[in-house]
Simulated scan of single mutants.
Amino acid sequence: MSTTGKSRKARRSPAPRSTDTAPTRRTALITGASAGIGETLAWLIAAEDYDLVLVARSRDRLEALAQALRESHPIAVTVLPLDMAASGSARKLWLALQRQGVAVDVLVNNAGVLQHGAFTAMTPADHQAMIQLNVAGFTDLLAHFVPPMAARGSGRVLNVASIAAFQPVPSLATYAATKAYVLSLSEALGEELRGSGVTLTTLCPGITATDMVARAQAGSSALQNLPAMLISDVQDVAVEAWQACLKGQAIVVPGTLNLATTLAARATPKWLLRRLTGLLGRSTL
């Protein structure tokens, strides 16, 4: 009888829904989450009490990371092994989360691939692999996950580019071009969505101590001899990126030297920039 009485009273004077239901959990989706910047961001975002969806090719590495995150934080972690370079992967990911009723509040578009070397020494497949993941897969993720954010009127996107996005880089010609695309699309989309409640932040790190950079260094003695001051710590990069994402900052370039380099690149005449980057790039081949 007491339950019935409360029900009738509620109909006469409805209580606010927020007092009757638990707060909605926030979810962050991170691609390229199994190592490097993606893995470090996973730890930072988990500490902010977000549930996580982790995406990368390696199931074993993702499962190990997910277990460690669950043991350290009271969050839900979903593992979805996918190759984001494969056609249709973004749609598969979106449909899988739709079936689970998961809405993505933060998209970390981090999956990417780098190949260092002379353009003519690489195979057509090498170039296509970079374009497929860094451009096509990147765009497809945005096309699937940003429209629902805009419809809700809230969401954050963190796209990972590179300081290579600011100038041509001989020895990284295709890679730098793909990251220029990432930066350009991010800036344009951010302006389209201004005032919508959805923000886009582009992370443009310099050389960072990650597995991807280590693989590039393994094939170049010049890269192996880079001064330590030129190599950023992955934790520092991830912290700056996450803070900028929370603020809705359009572009973040971690490190004073990297920031100075990008500002100089934008101010330098194109012909001179080509000569300078040509000298530096050729020296690493």
Rank of each mutant, 00 (worst) to 15 (best):
A46G: 14
P254G: 11
V146I: 10
I131P: 08
A173C: 07
V253R: 03
D236T: 12
T201M: 07
T261L: 13
E48N: 03
A228D: 15
T178P: 03
Q224D: 08
T123D: 11
L93N: 11
L259V: 02
R266A: 04
L276T: 07
R11V: 05
V213Y: 08
A260R: 10
G195F: 00
A46H: 10
A267V: 01
A111S: 05
L54E: 13
A85T: 04
K179N: 12
V113W: 04
S13A: 12
M149C: 06
G281I: 05
L44C: 01
E48K: 13
I163F: 00
T268N: 00
V239F: 08
I75Q: 09
L285V: 12
P205R: 10
I163C: 06
L272V: 02
A218C: 05
D83Y: 06
V198P: 05
V169T: 09
H144R: 09
D60R: 14
I75K: 10
L203C: 09
G255R: 06
L107V: 11
Q128A: 12
A22N: 05
G101S: 12
V77Y: 10
V53W: 12
A35D: 15
A216Y: 08
F145C: 01
T78H: 13
L62C: 06
R266L: 09
K9G: 08
A164D: 11
G206H: 07
M229T: 14
L69S: 13
S154H: 15
A177G: 09
G117W: 05
A161T: 03
V182T: 12
P254Q: 07
A241N: 12
A164P: 03
A86K: 14
L141I: 03
T31F: 05
N110F: 05
R61D: 12
H144S: 04
Y175M: 06
K179R: 10
C245L: 15
P170M: 02
K9C: 04
D51S: 11
V104C: 11
